[in-house]
């Protein structure tokens, strides 16, 4: 069983739930930006939740199927077409050999996840099929898919068409999108006024927004608490002695434009960070488009853990709805 890429869209990559364990070497976890959407798509077609699917950003690919199968598309709101017929999102549907899957223009969100019964079966690299183009790892020869690529599909455990994730369980960012942040790391390096401004201001997603990180602009620049630069840090007040970056950490080079590191994060560097987007809200960033309004909301650890538990409960609901 295989599928053929007729048109790759803008940037379509094979992604699963990532390759933990190599961040100390500068190889990030990677995997689906919106993990909940990939998990939902996999559940719908009877796959393991961590099976590899296709992640497409802003524009869908065009795919020809070479055998009968069942697929599901979750995540962004992008009309789905099987040959000329419109198909529902967040729902498992049957595809016949010779049929073509394509998409209309994006209506909301940023990334769709296409799961195929049996999962994409490209080779494992460091335990994962996730594509990490900077390190030429995973996916198709370490790169995004291209026209003419034929992707192998694994053996299906059995999939039922027609199963759907109820609308109330489809998580999408609001407007403005609210990203919850636990302040910390080098939070003390900015003035109290700047700390307050950061949470009060409305930000917009900058065009520089990709799997490595999302940049934001529009808020007031941050003022620093004066200091003598520590040896090895560099002279700019936003510099630190190069250290590790958490996933979701918010660095602000020069104090102007915050960058939230995402699944393909660089593992470290010399810019200070003011806090970290909590794990529960990382999926939402994967559905943000450039120019969308965003505000950051302060939470404490108890709030972060409660949000995490809520997301887990939502995934449990999806599991119940799809089993």
């Amino acid at each position: 069983m295989a599928l053929e890429i007729l048109h790759p869209g803008l940037l379509t990559t094979v992604q699963d739930l990532g390759r933990p364990g190599y961040f100390h070497l500068g190889i990030p976890i990677g995997g689906a930006m919106d993990r909940l959407a990939l998990i939902a798509a996999n559940r719908l077609v009877g796959n393991d939740e961590g099976a590899a699917g296709l992640e497409a950003v802003f524009m869908g690919p065009k795919i020809a199927f070479r055998a009968d199968t069942v697929i599901a598309v979750c995540g962004a709101d992008m009309p789905i077409k099987l040959d000329d017929e419109e198909m529902p999102g967040w729902t498992a549907f049957a595809v016949k050999a010779g049929q073509t899957l394509s998409f209309d223009f994006l209506k909301g969100g940023a990334r769709i996840y296409i799961a195929v019964a049996g999962g994409i079966d490209t080779p494992l690299a460091l335990g994962s099929r996730s594509t990490y183009p900077i390190g030429a790892l995973g996916g198709v020869d370490g790169r995004a898919v291209a026209a003419g690529d034929v992707l192998p599909i694994g053996a299906s455990a059995g999939a039922r068409e027609g199963v759907s994730v109820p609308e109330a369980m489809r998580r999408t960012p609001g407007s403005p999108a609210q990203l919850r942040v636990l302040p910390g790391l080098y939070w003390h390096r900015i003035t109290e006024e700047s700390q307050a401004n950061f949470f009060a201001d409305e930000w917009k997603v900058a065009p520089e927004a990709d799997r490595m990180g999302y940049r934001f602009r529009g808020g007031r620049p941050l003022d620093f608490v004066p200091r003598e630069p520590p040896f090895g840090a560099g002279s700019d007040p936003s510099n630190i002695v190069d250290g590790c970056y958490p996933y979701g950490s918010i660095q602000v080079p020069g104090g102007t434009e915050p960058i939230v590191l995402h699944r393909d994060a660089v593992s470290g560097g010399g810019y200070f960070m003011i806090g970290t987007v909590i794990s529960a809200d990382m999926d939402l960033i994967g559905q943000l488009q450039p120019h969308m309004a965003v505000s950051f909301e302060e939470v404490d650890m108890a709030g972060a853990l409660a949000a995490r538990a809520e997301r887990t409960a939502l995934i449990d609901q999806i599991r119940a709805a799809t089993s």
């Binding site: 520590p230 090895g232 250290g243 979701g248 972060a304």
Partner: peptide
Amino acid sequence: YSFGGDEHIFVEVDEEMS
């Protein structure tokens, strides 16, 4: 010591390099 969100602990042993 500082938490980096709910999944990381960041530990600065020293502000300067040595």
